[in-house]
Every structure is written in C-alpha cells, then in structure tokens.
Design a protein around this nucleic acid. Structure first.
Lengths: 248, 248
DNA sequence: CGGAGTGAAGTTGTCTGACAAATACTGGGC
DNA sequence: GCCCAGTATTTGTCAGACAACTTCACTCCG
C-alpha cells in the first residue's frame, strides 16, 4: 500500500505529535536518539529530522546539539488565537457545547472594502452568513462571514449547511477548499444597538471585535469574517515567537 | 553566560530571510533549485533544507513537491502581536515616536501568582518596573513588568536603564538574556481608577489588557508583563496557522 | 486546427552511509 | 570530595543517489 497522498515526514510529525498528546512522551522527557527513533518509525534519519524541524518550529520539542531532543515544557494552550480557527473550535476548547441561534444568510453585492479584502470587483455577489454562536446555550459571539458567491455556484444548498455546521468544515469537506492561514485583527469596542440586540446585552457593553481574512495555500482570499465576542467569553492567548533571532 | 554555537542552518535561514526583506526575492518568485541554492550558499543540500523547513514554518516560503520553492505573499504585518515584542516595537511599527513617562521601579516579594508564573518561591524578591508609554508624546499604554531580582544581582543600576530603553534590549545586550518566545493573553476591560489616572483618561474608558510571560530558549520564565492599551492606540494583528491539520 | 496523451527535463522528497561538533558520562588522580 | 581528561552518546553536516511529483514541449489522432 503506497498511496502516499502526502510526504512521509508529515505523517511522522503527526505520529510524534500524537504521542505527546497521548502522554506517552511527557514534558521534559528526552526523545529516543534520532537513529533509534528513525528505525522505530520505519523511516530514514533525514525524514525524521524533517519532522523534528517542524515540531521544533511549532514549539513542541527542543533540540540541543550533542544532548538530545526534548519535549517542550510549554504545552499547547487551549484557546489559542493563533492555532484555533473559528468560534466553534474556541468554544469546544473551553469545554463547552457550541451551538447556533438566529442563523440567516443572504446574497448581496460586495462593498468596496469587502471587494478589496477578497480580491473581487466591487459589486460582485458575496454570500453573507450571520450567526449568533452560543456556548452551553448562552450567546457569546455574533459572527458575520463573507465569501464570494461563485464558490457556491453549483451548490447553493450549502448555504443552509453553513448555518448549522462549522464554516471551515463545509468549505473543506463539501467544497474542497482548505484554509491554510488567516490574518486576524482585533480591538475592544462597545456594543452598538444592533449588536446588543442580537447578543441580548445592554448597549455599550464591552466586546472584543475580531476581523479576519482567511486564505488558501495559494494565498487566495477565501473568507472575510467579523466577530463580536463578549468580553468575558474567552481569554484569548497568542504564542509569540522571537525576538532574539539574530543574536551574534 | 553561555554563547551557544550557532548551527549553520540558522545562518542560512537568516541569509534567505534577509534577501526577501531586501526585495532581492519578491513575493511569488521561485527560489533557485535546492542544489543550485545550496552550492551558491556554500552548504550541503541537507543544511539548506533545514533552513527552508524553518522558513516554511514561519510562512515566508512555500515548498511544492516537484515544482519548486516560492516566496509567499507578503505576510509580515506591521503591528503583529505574534512577532512584535514589547510596546516599543509596536509604537515604532506604527510609525510613531516611542517615549516613556512616569517611569518608576521598586523591589518587592513576589505574590503567589507571580511566583507561580516565574517559577519562584513565594516571597522571593522581584523587580517591578512600571511605565506609561507614549506615542508621539501621547500616553497610550500603562505597562508593569515583573522579573526576578536575581537577574540584577550584580547590576542594580540597570533598573534605571529599563525606565528609558526597551526592556528586551537591556535584557539582551546588558544581561545576555535573549527572549525566545512568550505567551500572551488578552481581553477587553474598562479602566479602573488607578489606571485611568495614570493614562489621563476618564474612568470606564475602553482598554485592551494584555498579560504575558516570556521565556528564554531553555523554557525558563524571565519576565511577566501586564499592559493596558488604549482601545484605539493600535490594531493588533495575529497570523493564524492551520487549521486543516488533524481533522477529527 | 484543437485537444488529449506522451515523454523528457526539472524539482522536491527520501534513503544510505559517513564524519564533524557539541554535550554527557566515566573514572582516575589529587 | 573535587577537578579534569578521555570516552561514549547525540545532534549537525556532508555527499551522492534514486524515487515521486510537476511542468511543459511535443506528437499523435480526431
């Protein structure tokens, strides 16, 4: 069986990552030496090193010349803005039940700002999906997702799906569009009248507004999202890399 | 003081990264093939691949099997929470002049929470540096940095330096401590009386609170920081990776 | 003339084996 | 008990080769 859809090094990385998740490799412990681990996993040392490189970049392991490779202390953060995508993930990561209320969608011509973000001509149709997301039944986030209507050309019925399921899930499984990365911007705001009504909170309440554009692996903009989070719904965390890269 | 040897692959990564910064390799262009680039840089293909893997993890390049390695679309965001460290960087990235007012510092025993974050025994001394940071002369951030007093054992005068210069700069250049990564958490809050007075704003004003712990390359906690940002001072951005790794 | 299929060239992925460089460990000498 | 040199272990790098995949020019056929 050699249907290798993806590089072996990726499978090796996932395997090691899973072992860490399952606790077989706890924080601080040293991995077997590269030759030993490569033999055990049935790949060459070069392939194993490729996987270790990635894991090091993700901060899961640390490699020390002449000493060994160690599982990092810093475990994964549950609700991390830089790895968790979408509200569904965030709610589940917080250990609560994710739900949707008041979902609705419509098609409209893209505004100038939206057209710029999504690389469209102003006036081209976009699908807008608006939802109130709930955690354990309580409204916590108002989200508005905007994507070019052409993605749904043949599958208009999928818009209904997006009201129920995670948008990323529909994009990937039903449309074959995988989100590769996104850029999010956020700032604190006060709830205006319309948002306050949808979230059932007083006007002027504290919110965290997050704007985000997601791209596929070719750098093509896929979705533009606006989210309004209750201030105390989540504590967002971000893993920051650097500085201290170019030390002499 | 440890001067760790620098693997060649790290120098190679910096060299390629610099070429991208200098515009010699613009977005979308294809890099020379691995054998060619390895020869040009005077390293083996294995070392070059080590560097490329890192750059790919940082999102600067994309590698496609059988096709080539391509420079990603510009992804260095000016005020990016996941790469810019410290208030000084953020202010400068926004094109404004960074300044400090009302700087003061003192030593005190660590609270239980601080001791936990910095891996100290409760009661051990910490240095607290409190500053009001200004952008073009206007107060924008109140910051409180906490680090174990033992780092300053021999250099108590450096605490004065920290009132003027970037704390990361003092840590790195004067104390030889390089911050490797940090974990930041944020949420919107309202200004309480003390913060409002320091920032010269009305009580209840919108703020973004960021608290953060920074670590060195060995995973040792170095600094714990609390920052209170004016809501409209910066638009923070975060580059998000994934999802699409491990669909369950 | 256009489109599908074919093959060669180019590029990244992986393998093997070896040596260099850095660190950890061991044991002897004091 | 401590220091230090030598040895073993481990990661870093090198070289060359082949496999897997992409791209593109070309041919062949309708």
């Amino acid at each position: 069986m050699k249907t290798r859809a993806r590089p072996r090094s990726v499978s090796v990385r996932d395997e090691i990552s899973d072992r860490i998740d399952r606790g077989e490799l706890s924080a601080g412990t040293r991995l077997p030496s590269e030759p030993a681990l490569a033999t055990e996993l049935g790949v060459s040392r070069a392939t194993l090193r490729e996987a270790l490189r990635t894991l090091e970049g993700e901060g899961l392991v640390r490699r020390m010349w002449g000493s060994g490779t160690y599982v990092s202390q810093s475990r994964r953060v549950a609700t991390s803005l830089d790895v968790n995508f979408g509200v569904t993930d965030a709610i589940r990561a917080a250990g609560m039940e994710a739900g949707t209320e008041q979902g609705r969608y419509w098609f409209e011509p893209a505004s100038a700002a939206e057209a710029g973000q999504l690389n469209l001509e102003p006036g081209q149709d976009v699908l807008v999906v608006e939802r109130v997301r709930t955690a354990d039944g309580k409204p916590v986030v108002l989200s508005r997702d905007i994507l070019p209507a052409r993605f749904l050309a043949e599958h208009a019925e999928l818009a209904d799906q997006m009201l129920q399921r995670s948008m990323y899930e529909v994009l990937e499984k039903d449309l074959g569009i995988a989100i590769h990365h996104g850029v999010a911007t956020f700032r604190p705001i006060r709830a205006d009248v319309t948002v306050a009504r949808r979230l059932d909170i007083p006007r002027g309440e504290l919110l965290l507004a997050i704007w985000q554009v997601d791209y596929d692996e070719d750098g093509v903009a896929i979705v533009s999202s606006h989210e309004y989070h209750l201030a105390d719904a989540f504590d967002f965390t971000v893993h920051r890399r650097g500085p201290g890269r170019r030390v002499q």
